[in-house]
């Protein structure tokens, strides 16, 4: 591989990992608070579409970003009401949201854009980070991306710091491990869980907008194509720890990038095998065969005072 190819490969690995990094980091916060959002895929898809629509209608990608994040937050809010207040089965409700999001975005897309639209969505311009963008290989690989990549990483770091060093972070772990004890200690369990789910929604929204407005500059039906599920798998694979979760996303993204890279290099490899790899790894992880970690003790368990 030439240096240029290496740079392209690294850049596309990062690009393909980015939606999962964003979504998984938010989802990790929510899961540490005890709420599993199976609807991550649906939140992302909703944001992918709403972001594309906003950007296309106004010609301004920034508006698209706001639309996408707002739409994902609405889904997250309803998810929170159902999971926390109405104590519904989080997994089933989440799958329902994914079906709903697929139906709704496909329906609206066909109505608004038409079924065969190749409409280009105005996207963010790439930002060349001063000084480092011209470093050989690493410059083009890491420092010539849309701004959302850097904002995204900053947010991910902020989430880690927030979980680790703030009272809210402590509260998140407390309600995720033992909501009853947390309640007795005066922590508002429901409120913490609502905020945690909304954080997942915010990050899933950014992830979705990144796909349509930040990266591909178009919308296609079912565009997220399982990336939300992969992000969920990454949280498990990462053992509910920030750094490991991001590493899992990078691994999944690299496997995806390899599908395009290897054939380009003339290496014949069944691409289906590479596409399967993240799911198999995640399966091994949930089976505890690779780096087993215990999930938060109250994950998916609704809490009711006095019950």
């Amino acid at each position: 591989m030439t240096g240029e190819q290496v740079a392209v490969f690294l850049a596309s690995s990062l690009r393909l990992s980015m939606p999962m990094i964003l979504a998984a980091s938010g989802e990790m916060v929510s899961e540490r608070a005890g709420v599993l959002n199976m609807s991550l895929e649906g939140m992302m898809l909703t944001a992918t579409f709403a972001g594309a629509l906003g950007s296309w209608a106004t010609g301004r990608p920034g508006i698209g970003l706001l639309c996408g994040v707002a739409a994902a937050l609405v889904v997250a809010l309803v998810q929170a009401v159902l999971s926390v207040t109405l104590r519904a089965n989080q997994l089933v409700v989440g799958i329902g949201f994914n079906i709903l999001a697929l139906g709704a975005t496909t329906f609206l897309y066909r109505e608004i854009f038409g079924p065969l639209s190749r409409e280009v969505i105005p996207g963010f311009a790439k930002w060349e980070v001063p000084l480092v963008a011209d470093v050989p290989i690493l410059g083009p690989a890491l420092f010539r991306h849309v701004g959302l990549v850097y904002v995204g990483f900053a947010l991910v770091l902020a989430l880690w710091a927030g979980l680790r060093y703030t009272a809210f972070g402590l509260a998140v772990d407390a309600v995720g491990e033992d909501p009853r004890a947390a309640d007795r200690a005066g922590i508002p369990v429901a409120l913490v869980r609502y905020v945690a789910v909304l954080i997942a929604g915010l990050m899933a929204g950014l992830a979705g907008v990144f796909i349509s407005v930040g990266d591909i500059n178009t919308f296609t039906e079912g565009m997220t194509n399982g990336q939300g599920y992969l992000a969920l798998a990454a949280v498990i694979f990462g053992g509910w720890v920030g750094g490991r979760t991001v590493a899992a996303c990078l691994l999944f993204g690299t496997a995806t990038a390899l599908q395009f890279q290897l054939p380009a290099m003339g290496i014949a490899i069944p691409t289906a095998g590479l596409m399967m790899l993240p799911y198999v790894l995640a399966l091994l992880a949930v089976a505890g065969l690779v780096g087993h970690h215990d999930p938060p003790a109250a994950l998916t368990l609704p809490y009711r005072r006095g019950a």
Partner: peptide, 22 residues
């Protein structure tokens, strides 16, 4: 009319019924 409206109806059904199980 896009057939996706059927998918949408199904999703809505799951969310409402699972959500109101309580």
């Amino acid at each position: 009319v896009p057939a996706a409206v059927v998918v949408l109806i199904q999703g809505l059904l799951v969310v409402t019924i699972a959500g109101t199980a309580i």
